[in-house]
Protein backbone atom coordinates (compact mmCIF):
# COMPACT_ATOMS: atom_id res chain seq x y z
CA UNK A 1 0.00 0.00 0.00
CA UNK A 2 1.29 3.43 -0.88
CA UNK A 3 1.64 5.99 1.82
CA UNK A 4 1.06 9.70 1.59
CA UNK A 5 3.85 12.15 2.28
CA UNK A 6 2.67 14.96 4.52
CA UNK A 7 4.52 18.20 5.19
CA UNK A 8 3.34 20.04 8.21
CA UNK A 9 4.38 21.97 11.30
CA UNK A 10 4.28 20.34 14.72
CA UNK A 11 4.80 22.47 17.80
CA UNK A 12 6.47 25.17 15.76
CA UNK A 13 8.92 22.90 13.97
CA UNK A 14 8.68 21.82 10.35
CA UNK A 15 7.83 18.14 10.18
CA UNK A 16 7.25 15.50 7.56
CA UNK A 17 5.76 12.07 7.87
CA UNK A 18 4.43 9.19 5.81
CA UNK A 19 1.01 7.80 6.61
CA UNK A 20 -1.76 5.66 5.28
CA UNK A 21 -5.04 7.36 4.49
CA UNK A 22 -6.99 5.65 7.26
CA UNK A 23 -4.49 6.64 9.92
CA UNK A 24 -5.87 9.40 12.06
CA UNK A 25 -3.78 12.35 13.15
CA UNK A 26 -3.77 10.72 16.58
CA UNK A 27 -2.34 7.49 15.15
CA UNK A 28 0.28 9.49 13.28
CA UNK A 29 1.30 11.60 16.27
CA UNK A 30 1.60 8.57 18.53
CA UNK A 31 2.81 5.82 16.25
CA UNK A 32 4.68 7.64 13.48
CA UNK A 33 5.94 10.90 14.97
CA UNK A 34 6.37 9.46 18.47
CA UNK A 35 4.50 12.16 20.38
CA UNK A 36 2.46 10.13 22.86
CA UNK A 37 1.14 13.03 24.92
CA UNK A 38 -2.20 12.96 23.09
CA UNK A 39 -4.06 9.91 24.38
CA UNK A 40 -6.55 7.52 22.86
CA UNK A 41 -9.46 7.15 25.26
CA UNK A 42 -12.26 6.39 22.82
CA UNK A 43 -11.20 7.02 19.20
CA UNK A 44 -14.69 8.40 18.58
CA UNK A 45 -14.45 12.03 19.62
CA UNK A 46 -16.28 11.51 22.89
CA UNK A 47 -13.53 11.85 25.51
CA UNK A 48 -11.22 14.66 24.36
CA UNK A 49 -8.03 12.96 25.58
CA UNK A 50 -6.53 13.34 22.09
CA UNK A 51 -7.18 17.08 21.85
CA UNK A 52 -4.75 19.09 19.71
CA UNK A 53 -4.86 22.46 17.99
CA UNK A 54 -4.82 22.71 14.21
CA UNK A 55 -4.04 26.25 13.10
CA UNK A 56 -5.22 27.26 16.57
CA UNK A 57 -8.54 25.44 16.36
CA UNK A 58 -9.28 22.81 18.99
CA UNK A 59 -10.04 19.37 17.54
CA UNK A 60 -9.98 15.73 18.50
CA UNK A 61 -6.99 14.30 16.66
CA UNK A 62 -8.83 10.97 16.45
CA UNK A 63 -11.37 12.67 14.18
CA UNK A 64 -8.82 14.09 11.75
CA UNK A 65 -6.97 12.11 9.11
CA UNK A 66 -3.21 12.35 9.19
CA UNK A 67 -3.22 13.41 5.53
CA UNK A 68 -5.33 16.43 6.43
CA UNK A 69 -2.38 17.84 8.38
CA UNK A 70 -0.72 18.85 5.10
CA UNK A 71 0.23 22.51 5.32
CA UNK A 72 -1.25 22.97 8.76
CA UNK A 73 0.28 23.91 12.10
CA UNK A 74 -0.35 21.33 14.80
CA UNK A 75 0.06 22.07 18.50
CA UNK A 76 0.10 19.16 20.91
CA UNK A 77 0.54 19.00 24.68
CA UNK A 78 4.27 18.65 24.07
CA UNK A 79 4.24 22.15 22.60
CA UNK A 80 2.37 23.99 25.34
CA UNK A 81 5.25 24.69 27.72
CA UNK A 82 7.33 27.71 26.78
CA UNK A 83 10.87 26.40 26.60
CA UNK A 84 11.71 25.07 30.03
CA UNK A 85 8.92 27.10 31.65
CA UNK A 86 5.55 25.54 32.21
CA UNK A 87 2.64 27.38 30.71
CA UNK A 88 0.48 29.09 33.39
CA UNK A 89 -2.27 26.56 32.67
CA UNK A 90 0.11 23.69 33.39
CA UNK A 91 1.36 25.42 36.53
CA UNK A 92 -2.16 26.00 37.82
CA UNK A 93 -3.18 22.40 37.12
CA UNK A 94 -0.29 21.36 39.36
CA UNK A 95 -0.99 23.90 42.09
CA UNK A 96 -4.69 23.09 42.25
CA UNK A 97 -4.13 19.33 42.15
CA UNK A 98 -6.37 19.32 39.10
CA UNK A 99 -5.21 15.88 38.08
CA UNK A 100 -5.21 12.50 39.71
CA UNK A 101 -4.30 9.82 37.19
CA UNK A 102 -3.30 12.45 34.64
CA UNK A 103 -4.49 10.58 31.56
CA UNK A 104 -7.06 13.19 30.53
CA UNK A 105 -4.75 16.03 31.58
CA UNK A 106 -2.99 16.63 28.22
CA UNK A 107 -6.37 16.97 26.50
CA UNK A 108 -7.74 19.22 29.20
CA UNK A 109 -4.72 21.50 29.08
CA UNK A 110 -4.80 21.79 25.28
CA UNK A 111 -8.55 22.48 25.41
CA UNK A 112 -8.04 25.08 28.13
CA UNK A 113 -5.35 26.75 26.04
CA UNK A 114 -7.84 27.04 23.18
CA UNK A 115 -10.48 28.42 25.54
CA UNK A 116 -8.27 31.10 27.02
CA UNK A 117 -6.84 32.06 23.63
CA UNK A 118 -10.39 32.76 22.47
CA UNK A 119 -11.95 33.97 25.72
CA UNK A 120 -9.46 35.25 28.28
CA UNK A 121 -12.17 35.90 30.86
CA UNK A 122 -14.60 32.98 30.80
CA UNK A 123 -17.31 32.49 33.39
CA UNK A 124 -17.28 29.21 35.27
CA UNK A 125 -20.27 28.10 33.19
CA UNK A 126 -18.49 28.96 29.94
CA UNK A 127 -15.43 27.02 31.06
CA UNK A 128 -17.56 24.02 32.01
CA UNK A 129 -19.36 23.97 28.64
CA UNK A 130 -16.14 24.50 26.68
CA UNK A 131 -14.55 21.56 28.48
CA UNK A 132 -17.62 19.30 28.30
CA UNK A 133 -15.88 17.28 25.60
CA UNK A 134 -13.00 16.40 27.91
CA UNK A 135 -13.98 13.53 30.14
CA UNK A 136 -12.22 13.27 33.47
CA UNK A 137 -13.20 10.36 35.65
CA UNK A 138 -10.98 11.12 38.65
CA UNK A 139 -11.53 14.69 39.77
CA UNK A 140 -15.21 15.44 39.42
CA UNK A 141 -13.94 18.54 37.53
CA UNK A 142 -14.00 20.76 40.64
CA UNK A 143 -10.26 21.34 40.85
CA UNK A 144 -9.94 21.36 37.06
CA UNK A 145 -12.34 24.26 36.79
CA UNK A 146 -10.61 26.08 39.64
CA UNK A 147 -7.28 25.65 37.87
CA UNK A 148 -8.73 26.95 34.60
CA UNK A 149 -10.25 30.02 36.26
CA UNK A 150 -7.06 30.73 38.17
CA UNK A 151 -4.90 30.29 35.07
CA UNK A 152 -7.18 32.69 33.21
CA UNK A 153 -6.72 35.26 35.97
CA UNK A 154 -2.95 34.86 35.88
CA UNK A 155 -2.86 35.17 32.11
CA UNK A 156 -4.94 38.34 32.37
CA UNK A 157 -2.31 39.63 34.75
CA UNK A 158 -4.70 39.81 37.70
CA UNK A 159 -2.87 37.48 40.06
CA UNK A 160 0.34 35.53 40.09
Amino acid sequence: MSKSHVTTTINGEAAEFLCETQQTLLDVLRDVVGLTGAKEGCASGDCGACSVLIDGTLVCSCLVLGVEAEGKAITTIEGIAQGDHLHPIQQKFLEHAALQCGFCTPGLIVATKALLDENPNPTETEARYWLAGNLCRCTGYDKVIRAVMDAAAVMRGETV
Binding site: G37, I77, A81, L86, Q90, L94, G102, F103, P106, I109
Partner: peptide
Amino acid sequence: IRPDGVDKVTGRALFSAD
Protein backbone atom coordinates in the same frame (compact mmCIF):
# COMPACT_ATOMS: atom_id res chain seq x y z
CA ILE B 1 3.10 19.76 44.05
CA ARG B 2 3.15 16.08 43.29
CA PRO B 3 6.45 14.56 42.13
CA ASP B 4 4.97 13.15 38.92
CA GLY B 5 3.11 16.35 38.16
CA VAL B 6 5.29 17.94 35.50
CA ASP B 7 5.43 14.72 33.49
CA LYS B 8 1.65 14.61 33.53
CA VAL B 9 1.00 18.21 32.47
CA THR B 10 3.55 18.07 29.67
CA GLY B 11 2.49 14.79 28.09
CA ARG B 12 5.72 13.07 29.07
CA ALA B 13 4.25 10.59 31.54
CA LEU B 14 4.26 7.12 30.01
CA PHE B 15 1.00 5.25 30.34
CA SER B 16 0.53 1.67 29.20
CA ALA B 17 -0.16 2.41 25.58
CA ASP B 18 2.75 4.86 25.37
